[in-house]
Design a protein around this nucleic acid. Structure first.
Lengths: 274, 274
DNA sequence: GGAACGCTGTACCGTATGTTACGTATTTTG
DNA sequence: CAAAATACGTAACATACGGTACAGCGTTCC
């Protein structure tokens, strides 16, 4: 059963030629506003010509463009009058449609339920307040998270390093690490021996360790100053790092806020370098 | 402070003559839809003549009718993009311990609302069904997402490559790309010139492009076979890639399920290598 | 490799739309 | 009560909007 135009589009988008597909994608991207504008605006937004837009709406079954717009407006009217209908849409939005999404959302709520604001603040203070260096490292699947965090932190403060590549390469960096430094580690099942060894050595040198792990806690938790335990279970062959990702983003935001005063100048300097 | 047009109207409705007041009332009655229709429709709905409508919008401070409609559309766009502001009372926000988390959860729901299951399936089929190679690339902040996806896909199928490092290095890889290959690109604001150029060249070689972008669509959308538009707005100095991350995980899961039959042997082989 | 097909954009057309001028009705004020 | 001012609608106008014909191009299928 196809009730909305959006569904109609995603149903037929596969059978459309390239140009019309671009039209469909731009419309879906911020639905339904683009469809309420003029043909010329729609076409230039999609990067195609006007006739392509008209052929697109014709393919959807509308006689002409105004009829298409009227349908969009009717849909919008129904939506605005009963906001509940949007959350309760049984076909696409509802829970059962994407169990993956639902599980992920649950994971995040659960993760943050066990994560107090004070904890976030403390960790942000650790990352923002220190005078030493920040190192980030991750495991096989979590290394991208370390990179993501490093990419942001490196902009707002100096001496942020992501440790990549061979294990032997990190080990040599240990010599640079001391009590004033922080090591942010990502490690979820299966926990990697090499990471554990490295974290332990860093800990012995007095490095403060911030650990992102799953709810079963990597062995690194023994050495860690701060531990963030995210939920990872989803109906998939793989574990999900999404909850940890969101915590990482939250932390990036918190650190940024703390450094805003001193960091603003730094960001301005960076902008001027471009 | 008057922020919305509705407020502006109720502010000035007292000083309006009878005809314009009727126009104002019919517009408020089912706001803002009547204002998006034509002057003739608006006027007949209000039971007045066309010029009265035009005088009405002129009194509100707009130069002409299209300008008035554009303002309404902008307002609507802002409203539709942040569903939280409508369902959640911004002042109360009892459950919202972390506004960052709430915004992120909203982003995900909103992202998946615009993303049909069929679309995911189509993209998964593209990634799983091809006989060619898969390349992944990302921008400054999204490159970790490309890495994350590559780390998983590389396990369940051969010829998965993450493109990293200098632009000149990717460009040389273009020579390996052809019609049977797929390029997964991550690009959010600010869109990177180098990525756009690269995607365009790949497109010219017949490579199928799967694009992860934000709701404003990277220019790469013009060349893309599939476009995933994720919501990125959060109360932070940075944009959030969390929604795209979850889509990536969902896609990884979908591809894995598709390859399970043929891929099972491969995974067994990998296990035995450890 | 050639031919047929389908897709896309350019250029043009008719028309519906927003806009304006003007005359009439209605209200307001002295 | 008269006269002026304001408000409103009818009708004519110009613009720009949606729609169409056609040619070029790429793609696919013999």
């Amino acid at each position: 059963m196809i009730s909305s135009i959006a569904e109609l589009i995603s149903d037929r988008i596969g059978t459309m030629p390239a140009g019309e597909r671009r039209a469909a994608q731009t419309l879906i991207a911020n639905y339904p506003l683009t469809g309420l504008k003029t043909v010329a605006e729609f076409s230039s937004a999609a990067g195609v010509s006007s006739p392509t837009i008209l052929r697109f709406v014709a393919r959807l079954g509308f006689q002409n463009y105004p009829e298409f717009q009227a349908a969009l407006q009717d849909e919008l009217a129904a939506q605005l009058q009963s906001p509940a209908s949007r959350t309760l849409n049984p076909s696409s939005a509802a829970g059962a449609a994407s169990p993956m999404l639902e599980a992920t959302l649950d994971n995040m709520r659960e993760t943050f339920r066990h994560l107090s604001e004070k904890q976030i603040d403390d960790i942000a203070a650790t990352l923002a307040g220190r005078r030493g260096k920040t190192f980030l490292i991750g495991g096989r699947f979590t290394d991208p998270l370390a990179r993501y965090m490093a990419a942001h932190l490196a902009i707002i403060q100096p001496d942020v390093h992501h440790l990549a590549g061979q294990e032997s390469i990190w080990r040599d960096r240990l010599i640079d690490m001391g009590k004033r430094d922080v090591l942010v580690t990502f490690d979820i099942r299966r926990y990697q021996e090499s990471l554990i060894r490295f974290a332990e050595k860093a800990h012995e040198r007095g490095v403060q360790i911030v650990l992102f792990t799953d709810q079963w806690l990597s062995p690194i938790a023994r050495f860690a100053r701060h531990v963030i335990a995210g939920r990872t279970a989803v109906p998939s062959a793989w574990d999900s790092s999404a909850a940890l990702f969101v915590v990482a983003e939250t932390l990036i935001g918190a650190v940024t806020r703390r450094l805003e005063a001193e960091g603003a100048r730094r960001i301005r300097d960076l902008e001027s370098l471009r």
